[in-house]
Design a binder for these strands. Structure first.
Lengths: 171, 171
DNA sequence: TTATAATTGACACTTGTTTTCAGCCTCTGC
DNA sequence: GCAGAGGCTGAAAACAAGTGTCAATTATAA
């Protein structure tokens, strides 16, 4: 059971993505390359805002272009869109040979990746779902909590800095 | 391991919710009662739109009032807000002595409830999360798939009726 | 019944995302 | 290397979901 915090060890090849784009009749533009590199180098799944901000450091790019590029990438299985329990939507490269889930700090929004999941008991649960008549079942698992850093801060305060973000249903 | 499709067997008492509202200094209004009953009688977690539509059948109610009521209920642990992998946000009564997770059809959006979760393997995963320094850990699990009804329809078609809703990250 | 404080509806506003359209750029074929 | 076609981009506007404001209304305690 392994975990990372979470730069991918062997970065997805930009050239492979370029070929995938062209194979689908898309063009390889500077904007798409910048967005691809940002996603490849990211420590964690990124929001549209984060991508716009990072991309803006290396030249002008319109927010709309980022939306469109992400949509194109998503439709072509280059990136994965992940709506989280805190209501934000994040994007990451779909290099996922490795099956992983997300871990989100409810205080600071920091994300980590968990490169593990269920086990035997989990399989039984999946079986239950299939017995209910569901096919092509996928699962979506997210943990939320207070990360070590935020926990330390809290211990040194009488009042939290601000109202914690509501973290959706869970248990 | 039990599952339901998913009316609660012993409906949460409206009177109990009324008392909870009043205890928090809130007033018990016809609008709040209507929304409470709608949530209690729902077959599955509802979107704001669905609540507005259902509530409008028994009298006029403003969408803003629904938002505000749900927010008030959420703040007072009467309802739970659940953002799903398809990007929608749904609400359900927080009657949850029973720990459950959601099962969503990617085709028709129908929801079911799974009154079960991981098991021993799951506990190990939780342990990993805690070892990463996270406290107050909650988990959020959602299954998506093609339900029996939609599966049958698909088998009798060459083309899907419409583009399936993108169902977020999962695996 | 009355006073008062919370709730409501209407409207405007904010934020996040998509659409439209004209001009620009990548890529293919020559 | 060059030109044409079609895809991509930026700007502005449209759209959708959710929030803030305020006057009028209503539930509730006294």
């Amino acid at each position: 059971m392994k975990s990372r915090m979470c730069k991918s060890e062997e970065p997805t090849k930009i050239s492979a993505i370029r070929e995938a784009v062209k194979k689908r009749g898309g063009k390889w533009t500077p904007g798409r390359e910048r967005i691809t590199k940002i996603l490849r180098d990211a420590d964690s799944p990124l929001t549209v805002d984060q991508i716009v901000e990072l991309a803006s450091k290396t030249g002008r790019i319109d927010r709309v272009t980022v939306y469109r590029t992400l949509l194109f990438f998503e439709e072509n299985q280059i990136v994965v869109r992940t709506p989280l329990a805190d209501g934000t939507v994040r994007f990451e490269l779909d290099s996922a040979e490795t099956h992983h889930h997300h871990l989100l700090c409810r205080k600071c929004g920091k994300m980590a990746v968990l490169e593990a999941c269920g086990g035997k008991d989990w399989m039984k649960l999946l079986e239950t779902v299939k017995n209910m008549g569901f096919r092509e079942v996928r699962h979506f698992v997210e943990f939320t909590g207070i990360c070590a850093d935020c926990g330390d801060v809290l211990r040194n305060r009488t009042k939290p800095r601000k109202k914690p973000a509501s973290a959706g249903s869970s248990s």
